[in-house]
Computed example of a mutant assay.
Amino acid sequence: MNWASNSVKTWGHTFKTHGAGAKNTKALTDRARSTNNQQGQWLDNDAAAEFLKGLHIEGAGPRSVRIPDGLGQVIMPDGSIVQARAATIIPSPNGLYKTGFPIIGPN
């Protein structure tokens, strides 16, 4: 499955904003610094799309889920990067997700 063939309608800003790649890493690093909020980033868009498709439940609300090691990272306000252990997913009434992004997860 090629994640890029999926529309923004399907994925919201899951990959447009939080997807893999140096351009997104730079933008998320700048956002983390300027907002003082952690920013999650997927490290492999295809793998993340396959994983997220398997979690879609019609009518489910926003929730946090555990993710496989190496699927995401979190950029901290100081610019450091830590491995993500979970993701927040927010379903969309018009597609699969409004957004989905990695988070540090529970301790």
Rank of each mutant, 00 (worst) to 15 (best):
Q41C: 08
F15Y: 14
H56C: 01
Q41V: 06
K23D: 08
D44Y: 08
G19R: 12
K16E: 11
F15P: 06
G19C: 01
D78I: 10
I57C: 05
G40N: 10
N36Y: 12
A47V: 01
F15N: 09
L52Y: 04
Y97Q: 11
A48M: 01
E58A: 14
Q38I: 10
A27M: 07
A87V: 00
G70V: 01
F101V: 08
T88V: 13
A20R: 12
S92N: 15
H13D: 13
E50Q: 13
T35I: 10
P106Y: 12
V82W: 06
A48N: 05
F15R: 15
A87Q: 00
A4C: 03
M1V: 04
T25A: 12
D78A: 14
K16P: 05
T10H: 07
P93Y: 09
A48G: 11
P62W: 04
R66F: 00
L55T: 06
A32H: 06
P102N: 11
N2Q: 14
N94M: 11
P77S: 12
S64N: 12
S92Y: 07
E50S: 03
E58F: 01
G19T: 04
A84Y: 04
Q73V: 05
G54T: 01
L55D: 09
L55K: 15
K23C: 03
H18I: 04
S7L: 13
A86Q: 14
G61P: 07
Q39A: 10
G54L: 11
Q73E: 13
K9M: 13
G105C: 07
D44R: 07
E58S: 07
A20N: 09
A20Q: 13
F101H: 15
G95L: 01
P77R: 15
I89Y: 03
N37Y: 03
A49M: 09
G70M: 07
K16C: 11
Q39G: 01
W42F: 01
A27V: 03
G95V: 04
L71F: 07
T29W: 06
A87P: 06
H18V: 02
N45T: 02
H13R: 15
A60S: 14
Q38L: 06
V74C: 05
I103A: 14
R66G: 00
V8E: 00
H18N: 00
T25S: 10
D78C: 14
I67V: 08
N2M: 09
A84G: 05
D78P: 11
K26N: 06
T35R: 10
A20P: 01
S5Y: 13
I67Q: 04
R33Y: 02
A60C: 12
A32E: 10
T14D: 02
E50K: 14
M1P: 01
F51K: 10
